[in-house]
């Protein structure tokens, strides 16, 4: 497949109760570690109400790209803009406060803090009323309610991943970046996480999801697909009509 670009807005998000914010546009992004460049000249967008899936083999630069967008890596070249304003010079904590949430690969939560503390950490600053915002989270993640005072490290893998996603959501992010949520999870637990993410997208969050399980995400989950190959974009376009097997063969085999 040759490089294709398509801007067909196939699924308008019902932006219920949400300001029109959260468009993250990155272009010409170059990222690396020391003198090793892992991402060359990548364009990618997070659009409200759209779930963009990033595919590619390991080493293609998917995680590097996510980390760069989240602000954990300095930008070697290119621009990253949130709602038209550049965020490229901002460190991760600034970007987080501006509404860019990132769920890292590997269930990274604070094991020695309680579930409630983990979630509280995700809450935006200033609005210190602990009761209300947390209740909203527990509604979205009912399985966590009985565990609120347990140490996060004592939970099972699936529950920990829930905590990771929930705490990112506690900040009411406009943009959500998720890196391989399936990693280390049973398919059952992964399905649950995916459901939550899709629900979020339906609520108008701009989601970029990195995944290895091609078939799982191409069937009815992804709206838009970006495939990375050795740090560059090999394919970008709508997910509709993509043959998972073909994609796997061409780009991942």
């Amino acid at each position: 497949m040759s490089r294709q670009t398509s801007t067909a807005g196939h699924q308008q998000a019902p932006e219920v109760g949400r300001e029109s914010r959260g468009r993250l546009v990155a272009s010409g992004v170059k990222l690396g570690y020391g003198d090793v460049t892992a991402v060359w000249d990548v364009d990618i967008e997070a659009v409200p109400g759209r779930l963009t899936v990033v595919l590619g083999r390991n080493g293609a630069g998917k995680t590097t790209l996510m980390r760069g967008l989240a602000g954990l890596l300095p930008l070697g070249a290119g621009t990253v803009e949130l709602d038209g304003r550049s965020v490229a010079g901002l460190p991760a904590w600034r970007r987080a406060r501006k509404g860019i949430g990132f769920v890292q690969e590997g269930k990274r939560i604070f094991g020695q803090l309680s579930v409630e503390e983990n979630l509280t950490l995700g809450l935006p600053r200033g609005r210190h009323a602990q009761g209300d915002p947390l209740e909203r989270i527990y509604e979205d993640f009912p399985r966590l309610t009985p565990m609120r005072n347990r140490l996060a490290g004592e939970l099972s893998g699936g529950q920990q991943q829930m905590v990771a996603v929930a705490s990112a959501l506690a900040g009411d992010p406009a943009v959500l970046l998720v890196d391989e949520p399936s990693s280390g999870l049973s398919p059952l637990a992964f399905d649950e996480i995916l459901e939550v993410i899709v629900r979020l997208k339906d609520r108008g969050v701009a989601v970029i999801l990195v995944e290895q399980l091609v078939e799982r995400v191409l069937n009815g989950v992804a709206d838009h697909v970006v495939i990375l190959e050795r740090g560059r974009v090999g394919f970008v376009g709508p997910a509709k009509g993509l043959d998972a097997h073909q994609v796997a063969k061409d780009f991942l085999a």
Binding site: G71, L72, Q104, L121
Partner: peptide, 8 residues
């Protein structure tokens, strides 16, 4: 790192 991603 995780703390930074939570805005800390």
């Amino acid at each position: 790192e995780s703390a930074a991603l939570r805005g800390v």
